[in-house]
Design a protein around this nucleic acid. Structure first.
Lengths: 200, 200
DNA sequence: TAAAATATTACACTCAGTGCAATATTGCAA
DNA sequence: TTGCAATATTGCACTGAGTGTAATATTTTA
């Protein structure tokens, strides 16, 4: 019965994931159409075919809906950093890890989410704090790769600047009219910045 | 009657400022005693001798109470940067501006506020977004001092790293058991970081 | 097929925040 | 001084997010 066990366990989890995704997608559509604040949880629940109370069984807050697509980012980021071949400059390690991260983004959806986040001071603040979390993740992962204590502050700076570049690239990309890809933005910014760090 | 005018105008403003400060101080005391979430606006209003509705005449949200002490930070910061004597390295400009900023802090109150902020994910996020605002302020002010376009990215990096140092210093200071002053933390961190930026 | 685990819901509640309109207080001009 | 205008304070009723609880439905497993 082990097989049946696994199938049924998996089915339940699949069901849950499906409901979760359905709520999130429904909510995103409503946010785009009517704005974040103007979209009540009642509206989201109704459009998702669940009760208001059940919403809170899936998400602990309204804001968390938007976090759905970012939940695994720190762990993915960490893994990407540690998976980089050794012998590279730490800046290159982070640049490559960033490229892996953003390769998985759905451009349409990302930009829609970005616009919603920009519309609310609260969402913006919550989002910005996620960059600091990424910076911390980057720093810790770099320290595993370069455990030498004398390099600690260098790794701090690399983490700060790299995640800063990621933030700027995402902003410029989501804001920009030009058809440039996010990858292009990121690579250009990194190249520009790399010119600087030696001559400060 | 010009004199009387000014006196009475000033008196009204003084009254307003006093009430505002009284509410903020009362609230801070309650936050420290009972925690941020457990302190309702009703409790704050009552302890401040005003009605709940009047509270919103002075503050637009509960969170804004804590922002009272940081409201003028960006403008003060900007002024401090622009007031620095020329001929210095941009890192020194920002370090000195930071020192001016933190010189005005009341240690007791600052640490109390820091503890409250740490206790709430929401407050933490709002606070972290203020560092990004400071970074933006620093960047813009540095660009006024070094308008040369070829230095733009260098200024970005200086702003990122310096404000990052400020953040780390404040965290270490507020968290630390040792009696070291905030100034000491900041100077030490800057010195450490300055060693790095040339040899990345 | 029964009981254990998980999912869904209703209901009633707290609290932050807003709109509105009434009242009180103060400032200023005649 | 008195009356008018601006500002300050309040009450009331409302919306919307989020929680506690307990009941009911559904699914899993033994």
């Amino acid at each position: 019965m082990i097989e049946t066990d696994q199938v049924q366990e998996g089915w339940r989890e699949r069901k849950r994931r499906e409901t979760l995704d359905r709520i999130a997608d429904t909510a995103l559509t409503l946010f785009v159409k009517n704005g974040y604040d103007a979209t009540t949880l009642d509206a989201i629940a109704e459009a998702s075919g669940i009760s208001r109370r059940t919403f809170f069984y899936y998400f602990k807050s309204k804001e968390e809906i938007l976090a759905t697509w970012q939940r695994e980012l720190p762990e993915t980021f960490r893994a990407a950093i540690l998976a980089e071949p050794s012998g590279q400059h730490p800046f290159d390690v982070l640049q490559n890890a960033h490229l892996k991260l953003i390769a998985n983004l759905d451009p349409q959806k990302s930009i829609a989410i970005y616009r919603i986040i920009r519309s609310s001071e609260y969402l913006l603040a919550m989002n910005q704090s996620k960059y600091l979390k990424l910076e911390q993740t980057a720093f810790e992962a770099l320290r595993e790769l370069w455990p030498d204590k004398s390099r600690m502050n260098a790794m701090r700076i690399v983490a700060m600047v790299s995640v800063g570049i990621l933030r700027l690239s995402l902003e410029n990309w989501a804001e920009g009219q030009e058809g440039k890809s996010l990858e292009t933005y990121l690579k250009e910014e990194f190249e520009e910045m790399r010119k600087e760090t030696l001559k400060l």
